[in-house]
């Protein structure tokens, strides 16, 4: 069962771009996607976070109309999506995980080809191709075959093709896999800019940092099931919402622990050989008072470490396994 942290605040019915309702897809005996539901609003970036094989790409395939769901439905701007439904696909841009470009064609030819298939023509096509080349920084290499491009350039073109027809909904399926840090940052900045312009974005990834940086709301998916969804903070609250502080030093750690437990922010304090493990609420706010109290109780501090729960912790909490297992 999906744990919904809160009802999405940005998705009033009038703003909903995408409605995914109870999607089920089976391959033989394997249920790859099992009863997945969520919505995405205009200007919202929705992250699908899960390990490889969790069902992200199958979910995306049904949303993009590549696969027919066995049960459930996908509605894009009020239109039912499916493999033979052309109308809703006009509003969709898909950036597949694979580099979906033709190596023997130039960047401009690739853009012209997919632009024509999207229904662009004449001056509009020419203008959009120019804009996307500019956006992806490929204007100078527009005429060369893409097989001579670097991996980062290919990734940028791959994303550019998805943006060519100015879709209302953009799906990015693990767009940073195998990308160098510089190109990865450029891609993430592009996604942020698109979201700011009002585009609805679905971003699948198994990189926690990307999901935390980009996504307004995140759906955590594992074994084909949406385990939970909400904003980052909402999801973290599912773990109990507590932080950890480790104090290292010399002195009477037991006495320090007792003093610290008297503070409202400290829920638990465990003394271990030269260390104090604290479970606290809102560590950044509480840390100053904790250090003061520990020092006052005679502890000579040599190190203070704060660790806050992240999406990795949420995934571990929900599934009992690490995100990258």
């Amino acid at each position: 069962m999906t744990q919904t942290a809160t009802e999405p605040t940005t998705t009033g019915d009038g703003q909903r771009v995408l409605v995914v309702d109870n999607l089920v897809r089976r391959f033989g005996d394997l249920t790859a996607v099992d009863d997945v539901s969520f919505t995405v609003a205009a200007g919202e970036t929705y992250g699908l976070l899960g390990p490889n094989g969790a069902g992200k790409t199958t979910t995306i395939s049904m949303i993009a109309g590549l696969l027919e769901p066995d049960q459930g439905s996908v509605t894009l701007l009020g239109q039912q999506m499916g493999p033979k439904k052309a109308a809703p696909k006009r509003h969709l841009g898909l950036v597949p995980q694979d580099l979906a470009i033709y190596p023997d064609l130039s960047a401009r030819e690739n853009l012209n080809f997919f632009g024509k298939l999207q229904g662009l023509a004449g001056g509009e096509l020419k203008s959009r191709v120019g804009e996307v080349l500019e956006l992806t920084g490929l204007t100078d290499r527009a005429k060369g075959p893409t097989k001579d491009f670097s991996g980062g350039m290919k990734r940028r073109l791959n994303i550019g093709i998805g943006l060519l027809h100015k879709p209302t909904m953009l799906i990015l399926d693990e767009p940073t896999v195998g990308v160098d840090p510089q190109s990865r940052n450029a891609i993430l900045e592009s996604v942020e800019a698109l979201s700011d312009e009002g585009m609805a974005v679905i971003y699948t990834t198994h990189y926690m940092e990307e999901a935390e940086r980009l996504c307004d709301r995140i759906g955590i998916i594992d074994s084909g099931t949406l385990q939970a969804e909400g904003t980052r903070d909402e999801l973290i609250r599912l773990t109990g919402g507590v932080d950890n502080i480790q104090l290292t030093g010399s002195g009477d750690t037991a006495a320090a622990a007792e003093a610290l437990l008297a503070l409202d922010s400290v829920a638990q304090a465990d003394a271990e050989r030269g260390h104090l493990q604290l479970t606290v609420h809102d560590a950044p706010t509480a840390v100053a008072q904790i250090v003061t109290t520990a020092t006052a109780s005679g502890l000579q501090l040599s190190d203070v470490q704060i660790s806050r729960p992240n999406l990795e912790s949420v995934f571990l909490h929900l599934t009992g396994k690490a995100l990258r297992d």
Partner: peptide, 15 residues
């Protein structure tokens, strides 16, 4: 194999 088929099938046309 290249992944372009997925993109083609996402285009607004009869597959």
């Amino acid at each position: 194999e290249f992944g372009t088929l997925a993109r083609l099938r996402s285009m607004p046309m009869n597959p």
